[in-house]
Amino acid sequence: MDTYKLGAVESRFAEIIWNHEPLHSRELVILCQQELDWKKPTTYTVLRKLCQRGIFQNKDGIVSSLISRQEYNARQSEQFVEETFAGSLPAFLAAFTTRKQLSAREVEEIRRMIDSYGGE
């Protein structure tokens, strides 16, 4: 199993941390209770598991991320492209654009991304 893959429940939890980090673990408990209706031990259990997997860290009661949201999303996307389109970005784009029309602004944006990527 991919250590960086988060389940649906874990993703919600991770979102809370990314949105508020760095935060004290006590604050996290309160937030989780408000948003997820979790009890304190549940929050700590899940937090401990994600720390073990190297996604977050809990140093002296301060919770912060080791992997940022963008990084996490990037890894997820890479993995998705890898698994679904054998790592071919054009194939992915082709699949994406067959069903959904891109607006001119979106096309321009992608083109700029590709240009800057290819230029490096």
Partner: peptide
Amino acid sequence: AAPSIFVGDGVWICDH
């Protein structure tokens, strides 16, 4: 089942 999220209508979802 403790780390789970209420998704409505008496249903919770749960990882693992």
